[in-house]
């Protein structure tokens, strides 16, 4: 973090990662955020973690990612995380058809509990296990198109396309801001301009990271 000042970003985007148990939600998140820690923390990542700053169109954006792994049996708990999410990564496992079949349930939640502009990205994980595939790329792509979702197959193990999924989502959100379809003043847009420009929002739920950046997402080595 040394050469990247904690306040040196223009927006915070909030993401949520959803999907069945064991599809690799935490692995995706680790894979995506690990790079940041690589240098000083090669092995072990604590639970105080889940942010990364990326760049889209020359703008620095802080992604704040809420993982729901381990809480799949508490559907109503995961529901509480949706509030104010700008992006939702909906993950299934290409080697387990059941996890794909359950997408409609996750999608219903995501659609009904987020605002219409929330970008939903469908991720078929475990792309490295092509031999055990139970869901074809084409089928999932069709599902994504029909439901207006972005789609990629990733491998949290090798890192293939993981970066793309997170960044494409951000790019799409950024585009929505640029063309005015995402209203930043709306209470639950899931996007915050730079903390200094935005004192706590009225409903108190999106004013997340205004102070004490140093305690956030620190490596526990």
């Amino acid at each position: 973090m040394a050469n990247q000042g904690p306040y040196n970003y223009s927006y915070i985007f909030k993401y949520i990662i959803i999907g069945d148990m064991g599809v690799g939600k935490s692995c995706l998140l680790h894979q995506f955020t690990e790079k940041k820690f690589m240098a000083d923390c090669p092995h072990t990542i604590g639970v105080e973690f889940g942010t990364r700053i990326i760049e889209v169109n020359g703008q620095k954006i802080k992604l704040q990612i809420w993982d729901t792994a381990g809480q799949e049996r508490f559907r109503a708990v995961t529901r509480s995380y949706y509030r104010g999410a700008a992006g939702a990564l909906m993950v299934y496992d290409i080697t387990r058809r059941a996890t794909y079949n359950h997408l409609s349930g996750w999608l219903t939640d995501a659609r009904s509990l987020t605002n219409p502009n929330t970008v939903i990205f469908l991720i078929g994980n475990k792309g490295d296990l092509d031999g055990q595939r139970e869901v074809t790329y084409d089928e999932a792509k069709r599902f994504a198109d029909e439901n207006d979702l972005l789609f990629l197959e990733t491998s949290a193990k090798t890192g293939d396309h993981v970066e793309d999924a997170f960044i494409e989502t951000a790019r799409k959100i950024y585009q929505n801001i640029q063309d005015g379809s995402l209203d930043l003043n709306a209470a639950e847009s899931g996007v915050q301009p730079k903390p200094s420009a935005n004192p706590r929002s009225a409903n108190g739920t999106v004013g997340l990271d205004g102070t004490g950046q140093s305690g956030d997402s620190k490596c526990q080595c």
């Binding site: 680790h30 639970v47 993982d67």
Partner: peptide, 8 residues
């Protein structure tokens, strides 16, 4: 627990 297990 899940996060620590899956991520490490």
């Amino acid at each position: 627990l899940t996060f620590t297990h899956e991520g490490n």
